[in-house]
């Protein structure tokens, strides 16, 4: 019987590492994932909100509200009319006032009131900050700057880690060799296909340049003086 030759310690460590790195990767991925949930929700929800700026106001809701007060005499001086309206509505001093015809306009920072003096109808139009979204969008745009820049940078690094570690979390046919590779290729193909299809930033730049050249040409044509009238014989 021969004694087994002991393996060098480095090989044991190497083997252990080879066997254990995936659980470590998963464990870190999981914890980083927990850490990133809050910010991911903020960035994703506000991303959806501000991606559709053309369709809605992601920061404020506007509302109309109507009330009725006693009619305001047409011949009441402007100051008296404003005071009467303010007293009836329990309002503070407005940022500005304006009176035209039967209308009295009171402007505040976040709302505007039009009071129809002849009927006493008050139409208030205002805007209120959307719950959560206003703050989420503020963070997303990094309007506050300062420390948020570093937090956003750190979050981006965490996201990169999640993306890369996610590739290697499991092995086998559901890992990167088969299904993972197919889905990875599909995911990467989407932006590539879009850039190819749309022409990318170069096409956009070209279109903008052509539009401004066309506008300048047309403006030049409009500005060109008309030829002098023919001399009278």
């Amino acid at each position: 019987m021969t004694a087994a030759t002991p393996e060098p310690p480095t090989a044991v460590v190497g083997e252990g590492l080879k066997r254990r790195w995936r659980p470590w990767l998963r464990a870190i991925h999981r914890d980083v994932g927990y850490l990133a949930v809050g910010l991911t929700i903020i960035y994703a929800v506000s991303g959806l909100a501000i991606n559709h700026l053309d369709d809605w106001d992601p920061n404020f809701t506007t509302y109309p509200r109507e009330r009725a007060i006693a009619p305001i005499a047409a011949d009441a001086p402007d100051d008296a009319a404003v005071e009467q309206a303010r007293a009836a509505l329990g309002l503070g001093p407005p940022r500005s006032t304006y009176r035209a015809g039967d209308e009295l306009h009171l402007e505040y920072d976040d709302r505007k009131l039009v009071i129809y003096g002849d009927t006493g109808l008050v139409v208030e139009q205002g805007r209120e900050a959307r719950f959560f979204l206003r703050v989420a969008n503020w963070l997303h745009y990094n309007r506050g700057k300062k420390a948020w820049t570093y937090i956003a940078d750190a979050y981006a690094v965490l996201l990169l880690y999640l993306a890369v570690s996610g590739l290697f979390m499991i092995k086998g046919k559901k890992g990167l060799r088969w299904r993972g590779a197919a889905l990875l290729a599909l995911g990467a193909a989407v932006p590539i296909a879009y850039v190819v299809w749309s022409g990318g930033p170069a096409a956009e730049q070209r279109a903008t340049r052509e539009a401004s050249e066309r506008a300048a040409r047309e403006a030049g044509e409009r500005a060109r003086p008309s030829p002098p009238p023919p001399a009278t014989p």
Binding site: L53, D54, D55, W56, D57, S96, Y98, A100, E103, H105, E107, K112
Partner: peptide
């Protein structure tokens, strides 16, 4: 329906 656009000052004054 609100179709967007860059708003003007909006005040009568």
């Amino acid at each position: 329906r609100d179709m967007g656009g860059r708003e003007g000052p909006g005040d009568a004054r």
